[in-house]
């Protein structure tokens, strides 16, 4: 088992290095950052000097090496636009994204999963069929579309929720959170729901199809033959076997949620790191974009790794196979 985990770990490190290089090469070197940095009156000599100072005249791999060197010292560089350290800008925006993502995950799992389980136990019922059709909608439409529709319904036609921004926040240990105030929660509601819908549909479908398949298996039949109460059959016998793949997917979907947060934050002007990314892209602020991408890649590879390790450790069958 240890060997398997180590191999998986090494694999992740290699993936990370390759991806970081591709990201770096792709974003950092295409186009000339001097077009943003230098103002229009700068002379050719000034631009030349600045290019050298930033090391932009060096070969690609040297620049990458220097960047990674500084990265390991915790230095993401400075923004071209604000001149602030990129790490400060990201840390400042992170809590907003974090609370939105976590709440949306809670909504999607808390609503999608139980509904899916019920639909999977009664696959022929009208509600189950209707839910499936609706889940197609939630699953396939881009999340800005739901943002748009929610805004239209709940902010324009029936203005009951605030449309943009974080609202009132409370500082805890110097970090501002919205979810601790009533106003903040009201502001959070629409963005979190928007972000949750796609995932909710996914959870519904996974739980439904998983339950539908499991309920036809012999061991469920035997559970019925044993005269177990139907509650126990569904929760203990069926759901347990459906949950292993679902937990894996919940883990993997966190990456999707972060990606989705970029769009959701743009729709609701939610000041998180996704909004920061889009703003930085529009202002050609490359250090921020590269930093975001690297952090995202790192987080993503890490989540994948954790999910895989959990899978290796938790599944009794692989566990036994590895020990035996």
């Amino acid at each position: 088992m240890t060997e398997m985990i180590i191999r998986r770990l090494l694999q992740s490190v290699v993936t990370l290095l390759v991806l970081s290089f591709i990201t770096f090469a792709g974003i950092y070197l295409i186009g000339n950052p001097m077009e943003v940095l230098a103002d229009e009156s700068a002379t050719a000599a000034q631009i030349q000097a600045a290019t050298e100072r930033l090391g932009l005249d060096q070969p690609l791999w040297v620049q990458y090496w220097h960047y990674m060197e500084r990265l390991f010292a915790g230095d993401f560089g400075r923004s071209y636009v604000t001149s602030l350290p990129v790490s400060t800008m990201i840390l400042q925006r992170l809590p907003a994204t974090l609370e939105m993502t976590v709440i949306s995950l809670l909504i999607s799992v808390g609503i999608g999963l139980p509904l899916g389980v019920v639909a999977g136990v009664f696959p022929k019922s009208r509600w189950s069929r209707g839910g499936s059709v609706l889940s197609v909608l939630g699953f396939s439409l881009p999340n800005f579309w739901f943002g748009l529709m929610l805004l239209l319904c709940l902010a324009v036609w029936f203005p009951i929720l605030p449309a943009i921004g974080r609202g009132q926040t409370v500082e805890v240990n110097g970090v501002a959170w919205s979810f601790l105030t009533r106003d903040g929660l009201a502001h959070l509601a629409m963005p979190a729901l928007t972000l949750a819908i796609g995932n909710m549909a996914l959870m519904f479908r996974l739980a439904k199809s998983g339950m539908q398949e499991v309920m036809l298996l012999d061991y469920i039949k035997l559970a019925r033959i044993k005269g177990l109460p139907s509650r126990r059959i569904v929760v203990v016998h069926a759901l347990r076997n459906v949950m292993i793949p679902i937990i894996t997917i919940i883990g993997l979907e966190i990456g999707g949620l972060i990606a989705g947060s970029i769009i959701t934050e743009t729709v609701f002007a939610w000041p998180g790191i996704g909004k920061l990314l889009i703003d930085s892209i529009n202002m050609l602020d490359r250090p921020v974009v590269v930093a975001y991408m690297l952090i995202f890649t790192f987080t993503f590879v890490l989540i994948n790794l954790i999910v895989d390790i959990c899978y290796i450790v938790l599944d009794p069958r692989t566990r036994e196979a590895l020990q035996g």
Partner: peptide, 8 residues
Amino acid sequence: MMSLNPSL
């Protein structure tokens, strides 16, 4: 092989 629940 099929009638016992694999995870219990």
